[in-house]
Structures are given as structure tokens and as C-alpha cells.
């Protein structure tokens, strides 16, 4: 296998595995946070509005880890620096 094919295959593999792991962590965290927020809302309906707005912000912050992964995956898939370098070397 030449180096270009190796870089392409490993990039795709790494992107998929990385996105999967990133999604798992974020999903577990968001599930826990949402469950706790719902429990809080059920126990204290008077505070539901306050809990809801705080929960939205916290969920967005937890989601950030998955989005970091997404950005890295997009970089690897669409703007891969190693791929460009290898392509340059091959075409030269």
C-alpha cells in the first residue's frame, strides 16, 4: 500500500472512531445532566423556569466536547494537512 492510500484509510478510520468516542462521552454526560434537571423540576415545580434555563446552558457546555471532536473530524476529513503534503510529494 502506498503512503497516500495509507493516509486516506487511516484518516477515515480515525475520524469515525474519534467521532464515535466523542459522541459517547457527550451523550452520557448530557443524559445524566438532563435526568438530574428533570428530577429537580419534578421535585420543585416552582423553580422549573430557573432550572430549565440553567440546564440549557449546561447542556450546551457539555455538548462542546462532542463539537470539539466534530471540528477535528472535519479537519481530518476535509482539510487534512498530511494528505495535502503527501499529495504534493506524489505530484511533484
Amino acid at each position: 500500500m502506498d503512503s497516500l492510500a495509507l493516509i486516506g484509510a487511516l484518516s477515515a478510520l480515525g475520524a469515525c472512531i474519534g467521532m464515535g468516542i466523542g459522541a459517547i462521552g457527550s451523550a452520557i454526560g448530557e443524559g445524566n445532566a438532563a435526568a438530574a434537571a428533570l428530577q429537580g423540576m419534578a421535585q420543585q415545580p416552582d423553580e422549573a423556569n430557573r432550572i430549565r434555563s440553567t440546564a440549557f446552558i449546561l447542556l450546551a457546555m457539555i455538548e462542546t466536547t462532542a463539537l470539539y471532536t466534530l471540528v477535528v473530524v472535519m479537519l481530518v476529513l476535509y482539510a487534512n494537512p498530511f494528505w495535502d503534503k503527501a499529495l504534493d510529494l506524489v505530484t511533484k
Binding site: 450546551a60 457546555m61 455538548e63 462542546t64 463539537l67 470539539y68 466534530l70 471540528v71
Partner: peptide, 16 residues
Amino acid sequence: FAMALRLFGNMLSGIV
């Protein structure tokens, strides 16, 4: 930095 990246990531993921 995280704020900027979060908005970008969310909109980008929708488009992708």
C-alpha cells in the same frame, strides 16, 4: 473560544 466553536460546530453539523 469554546463559545465560538460551539456555535460553529452546531451550525456546521446541521449543514453536513
